[in-house]
């Protein structure tokens, strides 16, 4: 009886440990939790004419390295611009205030992300800052129609 119940206890212990290990693998290796969401963050906003395709939880990157995430996208009721709210990890707290942001695409068919081009000002972005210099998402249809119109103009 006692050696039996010992085996039983050990196997249940292994079972629970393996299960929790699997959960940890999913949390850390698969979803990379703790990369951003756990640490200190600050929130900044930027206004864009067009954000086509950007979504909440899209990446925010400096030089291609992820430094934060988009948390919220709304429309300014007066100017009808898109207001993009994003959190940036506190370890990147020396981003100059005159940095510009743009919406780019990762690869031809990839996801949209927000890229920050650092400026040169001595002051840094902080909680609640608004980034003035923005470059909107490139809308492929507009680009093509512009190209076609300019072609037809040249033909005349």
């Amino acid at each position: 009886m006692s050696s039996n119940s010992r085996v039983l206890e050990i196997s249940v212990g292994i079972f629970v440990a393996v299960g929790i290990a699997a959960l940890l693998v999913l949390a850390v290796n698969v979803s990379n939790v703790g990369g951003f969401s756990s640490g200190q963050q600050y929130t900044v906003t930027a206004n864009f004419d067009n954000i086509s395709g950007l979504k909440a939880r899209s990446q925010v990157a400096i030089a291609g390295v992820t430094v934060g995430r988009v948390v919220n996208i709304t429309v300014d009721p007066v100017t009808f611009e898109a207001v993009v709210e994003m959190t940036i990890d506190s370890q990147f707290d020396e981003v100059p205030v005159d940095s510009s942001v743009g919406i780019y695409t990762a690869g031809l068919l990839g996801e949209k992300y927000v890229g920050i081009e650092p400026g040169g000002a001595p002051d840094f972005l902080e909680e609640g800052s608004v980034i003035r210099l923005t470059q909107s998402s490139i809308v492929l249809e507009k680009l093509i129609s512009q190209f076609l119109f300019s072609q037809s103009d040249e033909d005349k």
């Binding site: 999913l26 949390a27 290796n29 698969v30 979803s31 990379n32 939790v33």
Partner: peptide, 19 residues
């Protein structure tokens, strides 16, 4: 394989909901 997975799988949205 791993980095795309880590970039796209979200802890709150995907893992927690699965659990």
């Amino acid at each position: 394989y791993w980095s795309q997975m880590q970039a796209k799988v979200d802890f709150d949205q995907d893992i927690v909901n699965g659990v």
